[in-house]
Every structure is written in structure tokens, then in C-alpha cells.
């Protein structure tokens, strides 16, 4: 199971990096979204993965997984939504202002 999680995190990171290196704003946004998934999964997995042991206290539970990475990732998911929304808005604004969705500075804007 570990190899599945690791390979998925690796692939999402790779595609995320590839996309943020593109020249238009939309792929960069998607790339950042993929990187967010990968990062969140990474942090989550750093608490080691188990099945069937949610961190909900009860008398019958056999044990619990590490709750701390989960708490970190939970807020990270929400914040990354906020940040995605901001860059989407910025990308949209840039496109509407200039009629172009390139992210690199034009030669004469430097």
C-alpha cells in the first residue's frame, strides 16, 4: 500500500511541476492544484498510513492513527482553496486587462 501512496504522490508532484512551468495561467493554476494534493497527501502520509483506525476516541477502538498531520492537512486544504481562488481571480483579471493569459512579462514590460 505504501508504494501506491508514494507513487501517486510522486506522479502528482511531477505533473504539478511540469504544469507550473507552462506559459499560460490556466495550466499553472491546475499545476498548483495538483501540487496541493501532493503536498497534503505527503504531510498526511508522514503520520504513517493505517486503515480502520480513525482518531475518534471510543472504548472499542483497537488503536488510533496520528491525528496531528490530519489536523494540519485539514486547514491546509481549506487554505489552498482560498489561495487557488485568489490566483484564479488574478489570472482572470490579467486576462481581462490584457486580452492575453500569458504569465511571462512581455519584453516591453520589464
Amino acid at each position: 500500500m505504501e508504494i501506491l501512496v508514494a507513487s501517486a504522490v510522486g506522479l502528482m508532484t511531477a505533473v504539478g511541476i511540469y504544469l507550473i512551468l507552462r506559459l499560460r495561467s490556466f495550466p499553472v493554476i491546475v499545476g498548483l492544484a495538483l501540487l496541493s494534493y501532493a503536498c497534503n497527501a505527503f504531510i498526511f502520509a508522514s503520520g504513517r498510513i493505517v486503515t480502520g483506525l480513525p482518531p475518534i476516541l471510543s472504548k472499542t477502538a483497537a488503536g488510533y492513527t496520528d491525528p496531528l498531520p490530519q489536523a494540519l492537512v485539514l486547514t491546509a486544504i481549506v487554505i489552498s482553496f482560498g489561495m487557488t481562488a485568489v490566483i484564479v481571480m488574478m489570472a482572470l483579471g490579467a486576462f481581462l486587462e490584457s486580452g492575453d493569459d500569458r504569465i511571462d512579462l512581455a519584453e516591453d514590460d520589464k
Binding site: E2, A6, G10, A14, G16, I17, L21, A41, F42, S46
Partner: peptide, 14 residues
């Protein structure tokens, strides 16, 4: 670059 980055992150978490 992407491949190296992905490999690094995947390897690290593994």
C-alpha cells in the same frame, strides 16, 4: 525537472 522532482518527493515519502 518534473520527473526528478516527482521521483524525489515520491521516494522521500516512501
Amino acid at each position: 525537472l518534473a520527473g526528478a522532482g516527482g521521483l524525489a518527493v515520491g521516494g522521500l515519502i516512501y
